[in-house]
């Protein structure tokens, strides 16, 4: 925009200068002096027209700088955008990884126990640049077995007690299994039953 404004002001200047030149030429006496005066007027007009161009040429480096600045600015913008996009992509990758991990754990637990639903919440090392990315830090499992309970309620209390024992052993089994499989310390696995 700045550049355009400069060119605009330069063109306006040239217009003014040409008007001035015509008026000066009208003022010149029509004699042998005429050509001398004309030469001087011509020189002045030349200076007036060249001066802005000269400023241009002298500040040529400045123009380049300005252009480079603009390009750099664009580059910075683009790199910022790519960075942002990369961050979003990484986040998506981590999310997807977590989701699949949770699904896997869920399937694993469901294959081991008879439950209606299992909710898995796991926290992992989610920095993609980290060497230990994907390391499972903590697993929280909620097992819903309403179905079992409703069927149990209809049964005997003694059976329930034995079932409870069975369940603790099942939970221990699950814990051990997950701990082995995902290399998670036992204390970081919490299983809740509902």
């Amino acid at each position: 925009m700045n550049f355009l404004d400069e060119v605009k002001s330069w063109i306006i200047q040239i217009a003014y200068i040409s008007i001035l030149a015509i008026i000066f030429e009208l003022l010149i006496p029509s004699s042998s002096m005429k050509k001398y005066v004309k030469v001087v007027i011509g020189l002045t007009i030349m200076i007036a027209i060249i001066n802005p161009v000269l400023g241009f040429i002298k500040s040529g480096i400045n123009i380049n700088n300005a252009l480079e600045k603009e390009y750099n600015y664009n580059n910075v913008d683009i790199s910022g955008m790519t960075k942002q996009a990369e961050m979003e992509r990484n986040k998506l990758i981590v999310d997807e990884y977590k989701k699949r991990l949770n699904d896997q754990i869920k399937e694993r637990i469901l294959s081991m126990v008879n439950a209606s639903d299992v909710e898995v919440e796991s926290s992992i090392v989610d920095d993609l640049n980290d060497k230990s990315f994907g390391l499972v830090k903590e697993i929280k499992i909620t097992i819903f077995n309403d179905k079992n309970e409703s069927s149990n309620n209809s049964g005997n209390i003694s059976i329930e007690v034995s079932k409870a024992n069975e369940k603790t052993s099942e939970i221990d089994n699950i814990k051990n299994d997950l701990s082995k499989f995902y290399n998670v310390p036992l204390k970081n696995i919490t299983i809740e039953e509902r």
Binding site: Y16, I28, S31, V37, V40, I41, P52
Partner: peptide
């Protein structure tokens, strides 16, 4: 006009002087 055209006023003065001399 000369002020608006951005010509140095010295040049305008010189031209006017020259016309006067002529």
């Amino acid at each position: 006009i000369a002020d608006k055209s951005g010509i140095n006023s010295i040049y305008v003065k010189t031209i006017l002087k020259i016309i006067g001399v002529a």
